[in-house]
C-alpha cells in the first residue's frame, strides 16, 4: 500500500529509482558523444565558414565556393566538374544499379540454378578492404592487365594513353572505369543488405501466391518488393544523404591526384582538407572547405527532406 502511494507521489517506485543511475549512465555516453562529435564539430565547422584568417566575420569563403562552381579553385580543382561526376555516379548507382540489384538479389534469393556460386561471387568483394579491392582493380585495368589485353585482342581502338598506362590513365576511360567498378560494388553492397530483407519474407506468402497462379515476376513486384519496402525506403533515404560524400575510392585509384578527370565531391573535400593538413595550414585555412560543406548541406537538405517525404508517401501507398 505504502509503496503504491509513493509511486503515485513521485511517479516511480523505489525499485525503479534504483535503476536510474544505470539508465543515466547508459544515456550519458551517447549524449556526450553527440555533443562533442556532432554538435561541437558541426557548430565549429559552420563558424569556420564565416571566418577570415584573423577570425573576423566574412562571406568570402562562401563566395569562393560559388566561384568554384565554374572555375578552378585555389587548390587547382574544379568543383563544378567534381559535382558533375558525383551526380553522374550517384545517378547510375541509385537510379540504375539499385533497381537492378533488387531484382538480382531477389532472383538469387529464390534459389535459381547455381545461386550458391553467384552468391559467393557477390559476397567475396564486399569482404575485402577497399585498399585490397582497388589494388586488384588497378591491376585488372592496367595496360598489361586482362581487360586491356582482351579489348586489344578484340580489336578495340583504345586511346594511346590506355595502351601505355591503362584504363585509369586516359581522360576518356578513367571515369567510366571508376563508374563500372562502383557499379559492381554497388550490386554487391546492396545485395548483402537486401538478402537479409528478402529472407525475412515468409515462404508461405510465396506458396500462397503460387497457388493463386502468380508467376515469378508477379511474386517479385507485387509480393516480395512490397514486403521489403521499408528496408528499400531506408536504403534510398541513406542514398540521398550520400550524394556528395561518396568518393568511390578516387583517391586510391588516382594515387591521390584525382587525375585524369576523376574528381568527385567526396574526393574534392577530402583532398582539400588533406592538403591543408599536410601543408601545415592553420585552423582558419579550413574556412573554404567548411564553407563548401555548408553549401553542399544546403543543397542536400531539401533533396533529402522532399525525398524522404515522397518515399514515406510511397510507403503508405504500399502498406495500403
Amino acid at each position: 500500500m505504502s509503496s503504491e502511494i509513493k509511486k503515485k507521489k513521485f511517479g516511480y517506485s523505489k525499485f525503479e529509482k534504483m535503476n536510474f543511475p544505470f539508465i543515466y549512465l547508459m544515456i550519458a555516453f551517447p549524449i556526450i558523444q553527440f555533443l562533442v562529435f556532432w554538435v561541437y564539430v558541426n557548430a565549429s565547422s559552420i563558424a569556420l565558414s564565416f571566418q577570415t584568417a584573423q577570425g573576423e566575420f566574412t562571406f568570402r569563403n562562401i563566395s569562393a565556393v560559388f566561384k568554384a562552381f565554374n572555375t578552378v579553385d585555389s587548390y587547382g580543382l574544379n568543383f563544378g566538374e567534381s559535382l558533375k561526376h558525383s551526380l553522374i555516379i550517384w545517378g547510375i548507382s541509385h537510379l540504375i544499379v539499385f533497381p537492378i540489384s533488387i531484382i538480382t538479389t531477389y532472383i538469387l534469393q529464390r534459389q535459381i540454378f547455381g545461386h550458391y556460386v553467384w552468391r559467393v561471387c557477390y559476397i567475396i568483394p564486399s569482404l575485402m578492404g577497399s585498399i585490397i579491392w582497388t589494388t586488384l582493380i588497378k591491376y585488372i585495368v592496367a595496360y598489361d592487365g586482362p581487360v586491356v589485353t582482351l579489348l586489344l585482342q578484340a580489336g578495340a581502338d583504345l586511346p594511346e594513353m590506355v595502351r601505355h598506362s591503362g584504363l585509369l590513365a586516359s581522360e576518356k576511360t578513367a571515369l567510366p572505369t571508376v563508374i563500372a567498378v562502383s557499379t559492381i560494388m554497388g550490386l554487391v553492397g546492396n545485395s548483402a543488405v537486401l538478402t537479409g530483407a528478402f529472407s525475412r519474407v515468409p515462404d508461405e506468402i510465396f506458396e500462397s501466391a503460387k497457388l493463386d497462379g502468380a508467376g515469378f515476376w508477379r511474386e517479385c513486384f507485387q509480393i516480395a518488393i512490397p514486403c521489403v519496402w521499408s528496408t528499400l525506403v531506408m536504403m534510398m533515404t541513406f542514398s540521398l544523404c550520400s550524394i556528395f560524400t561518396s568518393d568511390v575510392n578516387v583517391f586510391l585509384y588516382s594515387n591521390g591526384t584525382g587525375e585524369p578527370g576523376m574528381t568527385t565531391v567526396g574526393f574534392h573535400l577530402y583532398i582539400i582538407t588533406y592538403r591543408i593538413s599536410m601543408s601545415g595550414g592553420a585552423r582558419t585555412s579550413y574556412g573554404y572547405p567548411a564553407a563548401l560543406g555548408l553549401v553542399l548541406t544546403c543543397m542536400t537538405l531539401p533533396v533529402v527532406l522532399i525525398g524522404r517525404w515522397l518515399l514515406d508517401k510511397l510507403q503508405d501507398a504500399v502498406e495500403l
Binding site: V72, S74, Y75, G76, E160, H164, E259, P260
Partner: peptide, 28 residues
C-alpha cells in the same frame, strides 16, 4: 592576389595537359 595556388597548379598541371594530346591519337 592569392595567386600562389593558381600558379602552383599551372606548374603541376602541365603533365596532365601534355598527356591529353595522347588521348586523341593524332597530332601527338
Amino acid at each position: 592576389l592569392g595567386l600562389n595556388s593558381t600558379m602552383f597548379s599551372l606548374i603541376t598541371h602541365i603533365p596532365s595537359e601534355v598527356y591529353k594530346t595522347y588521348g586523341e591519337g593524332k597530332n601527338v
